[in-house]
C-alpha cells in the first residue's frame, strides 16, 4: 500500500491542477479557435463558416493601427526597459552604501497596478495639468509637450509609462545575474589590469545571456497582453490612435457584440505570442537534452 502510494502520490497531487489547466487553458483556446471560425455575434454559435472573421479582421483599419502600435510599443518598451534596467543594475552593482534602499525605490513601481501607473501618468502628461502646464508657469511660455493628446505621438506616452513601471523589475533580474557571475574571473581580470568597462562588455554581460532571454520573454508577453495601461492612460485615444490588439478584442467582445471578431483577434494575438515563446522553449528544451 505504502509503496503504491509512494509511487502514485505525486501524480494524484498533480492531477487536479493538470485537469484544470487542460480544461481552462487549452480547452478554452480550442473553444476560441472554434468560435473564430463562426459568425457568432451576441452569443456564440457553432456552425463553422470558414475564415470570414479573419478576412474581416485583416480588412479593418483599426486592427492595422492596433498591430502597428503593438510593434512600436513592444519594440521600444522591451529595448528601453532592458537598456535602462541593465544600466541601473550595473550602477547599483558598484558596492554602494545604501544599495538596499535604492533597490527598493526602483522596484516599487512594480508593486503598483498598471491602472494606477496609467492614471498617474495621464495627469502628469496632460498638457493642461502636468509637465507642460508646470514648465509654462515657470515662464517658458512656448514650451509644448502634448504627446498625450497628439494622435501621432500618443503611443510613445504608453511606452514612457510602461518603461517606468517595468525597468525596476528588469534591474532586479539583471542585478541577480550580475551577482551570479563568478567573482574569481572578475578578480583575475582586475589583476590583469583590464579596465572595468571591458570587464563588463567582454566578461560579465556575455555570461548573462540566459538572463537577457528571460527578461525578453517576460517583457514581450507583458507588451502583447498590455490592456489596462492603455485603458487608464489614453482610453485607446485620441481617436483610436493608441489601440492595441487587446483593447480591440475587448471592444469587439464586450461593447459591440461581435464575438466572432473578438475570437479571431485573440487567435492572432496568441499566434504572435507563440512566435516568440516557441523558439525560446525549443532552445531551452534542446539545451537540456544535449
Amino acid at each position: 500500500m505504502t509503496v503504491w502510494l509512494e509511487r502514485h502520490l505525486p501524480k494524484m497531487v498533480l492531477a487536479p491542477s493538470f485537469i484544470a489547466i487542460l480544461i481552462f487553458v487549452y480547452g478554452f483556446i480550442a473553444w476560441t479557435a472554434w468560435v473564430s471560425l463562426t459568425r457568432s455575434r451576441l452569443l456564440p454559435r457553432y456552425d463553422i463558416e470558414g475564415l470570414i472573421q479573419y478576412e474581416r479582421l485583416f480588412a479593418a483599419p483599426r486592427w492595422d493601427t492596433a498591430m502597428n502600435n503593438l510593434f512600436i510599443f513592444g519594440t521600444l518598451f522591451i529595448l528601453i526597459s532592458m537598456a535602462l534596467g541593465l544600466l541601473l543594475a550595473i550602477l547599483l552593482d558598484q558596492k554602494i552604501r545604501t544599495e538596499g534602499a535604492i533597490r527598493t525605490i526602483y522596484l516599487y513601481p512594480m508593486a503598483l497596478s498598471m491602472i494606477v501607473t496609467g492614471t498617474a501618468w495621464k495627469w502628469m502628461l496632460n498638457p493642461g495639468l502636468g509637465v507642460e502646464a508646470m514648465v509654462r508657469r515657470w515662464g517658458f511660455e512656448d514650451f509644448t509637450f502634448d504627446w498625450l493628446v497628439n494622435p501621432d505621438m500618443a503611443i510613445y506616452t504608453v511606452v514612457i509609462a510602461g518603461v517606468w513601471q517595468s525597468s525596476g523589475f528588469v534591474m532586479a533580474l539583471f542585478l541577480a545575474g550580475l551577482r551570479s557571475v563568478d567573482e574569481e574571473i572578475i578578480k583575475a581580470a582586475q589583476v590583469d589590469g583590464i579596465p572595468t568597462f571591458r570587464i563588463y562588455t567582454a566578461i560579465i554581460i556575455p555570461s548573462m545571456a540566459p538572463i537577457f532571454l528571460s527578461a525578453f520573454i517576460v517583457l514581450s508577453h507583458l507588451a502583447i497582453k498590455s490592456f489596462d495601461l492603455v485603458i487608464a492612460l489614453t482610453g485607446g485615444g485620441p481617436g483610436n490612435a493608441t489601440d492595441l490588439p487587446a483593447t480591440y478584442m475587448y471592444a469587439m467582445a464586450f461593447s459591440r457584440g461581435d464575438i466572432g471578431q473578438a475570437a479571431s483577434s485573440a487567435m492572432v494575438m496568441m499566434a504572435v505570442v507563440f512566435a516568440i515563446v516557441v523558439p525560446y522553449l525549443y532552445s531551452e528544451l534542446r539545451a537540456k537534452n544535449d
Binding site: 483599419p61 494622435p151 481617436g239 490612435a241 461593447s255 459591440r256 457584440g257
Partner: peptide, 19 residues
C-alpha cells in the same frame, strides 16, 4: 444600428476627427 455597424462608423468618425 447594431453594435458592429455603429461601431464601424464610429471608428471612421473618430479617426477622421483626430487626424
Amino acid at each position: 444600428l447594431r453594435g458592429a455597424q455603429s461601431g464601424a462608423i464610429t471608428d471612421v468618425v473618430t479617426a477622421h476627427f483626430n487626424s
